[in-house]
Amino acid sequence: MLIAVILALAVGTYAFRLSGVVLRDRLALPDDVHRLLPMAAAALLAALAVTAALTEAGAFAGFARPAGVLVGAVLAWRRAPFVAVVVAAAGTAALLRLLGVP
């Protein structure tokens, strides 16, 4: 049973991944639609980032995580190096939790 679950998940996920890549060429998409695809990806990634920053299992994630992400986002906006963004975000969240902030 466990093997069947893992295989179903693996095959289904791979099908999602591969079909997007293959469909891009097979579908004769008009130029307008081609222009929309990176925007669609940006919307999905932004939604992932925002929901992951603010929520956990459908509810508010607490203050430490969004505060860390905010610090990272401000640094990124100020064109700080990527590594600094990631380290500052994690460091802020970790420090706040050390101080007892949820």
Partner: peptide, 8 residues
């Protein structure tokens, strides 16, 4: 917090 910040 690192992953959402990195994505952004």
């Amino acid at each position: 917090a690192a992953f959402p910040a990195g994505l952004l």
